[in-house]
């Protein structure tokens, strides 16, 4: 088998067929092909393919006569758009490469994600360490900050009432002790 039939060389043969190789390489291959029936067959097949592809020519395509008129109408219409629309188009829908566009897209996606999280979980910004006092720091999932403050105030009020009750109990014991002769006043 001819070494020109390997994949790498077949690509060179393709270039040879297209006559796109340097002149000296073309001359050397001319000499080889003249002696090699395998390469001759390969080239004949490629030329036949190109001949067939030539038949598939778009030359018969009749371009619509008002192509230019429609294009200029679109250009004119775009010119009438508000400034911000034109600016948006020139940045995002133009032919010029914008190397920073992927970065901007990622930044916008990040902002959208943060906004989504904020909307989904508006009151869950506090976290509680294990063993921390529950009253002052815990806010139940989904509860607002106002709810937590209200709960704290209620608990504080209960504590004061309990302390008042204890003091009243002590005073009562003191009165009883005075009446029965048991010295309880030192304990207060």
């Amino acid at each position: 088998m001819c070494p020109m039939q390997s994949k790498e060389n077949a690509e060179i043969l393709l270039e040879y067929c297209a006559r796109t190789l340097p002149t000296d390489t073309m001359a050397r291959l001319d000499a080889h092909v003249a002696m090699c029936s395998s390469c001759q067959q390969e080239l004949a097949a490629q030329r036949q393919l190109w001949s067939a592809l030539d038949e598939f020519d778009a030359a018969e395509l009749q371009i619509t006569p008002d192509f230019d008129r429609r294009l200029y109408a679109r250009i004119e219409a775009e010119g009438r758009d508000p400034f911000w629309v034109r600016a948006w188009r020139s940045v995002f829908v133009s032919g010029q490469p914008r190397p920073w566009r992927p970065a901007m897209t990622m930044a916008l996606a990040g902002l959208a994600t943060v906004a989504l999280i904020f909307v989904q979980f508006p009151g869950s910004e506090r976290t509680v360490a294990p063993g921390a006092p529950p009253v002052a720091t815990i806010s139940d999932e989904g509860a607002t900050v106002e709810d937590a403050a209200l709960k704290t105030a209620t608990v504080d009020k209960l504590e004061i009432e309990r302390l008042d009750t204890a003091l009243e109990d002590l005073e009562m014991l003191q009165v009883l002790g005075t009446k029965t002769g048991v010295g309880t006043s030192n304990k207060l």
Partner: peptide, 29 residues
């Protein structure tokens, strides 16, 4: 440009439409 798009997609109306978009983008840029 029109012939290239036509060979790619095989539809003349769409080929012309896309070619218009190409030149529109060239103008925008």
């Amino acid at each position: 440009v029109i012939h290239f798009v036509y060979r790619m997609i095989q539809n003349q109306a769409v080929a012309e439409e896309l070619a218009q978009e190409v030149f529109l983008r060239v103008y925008r840029s």
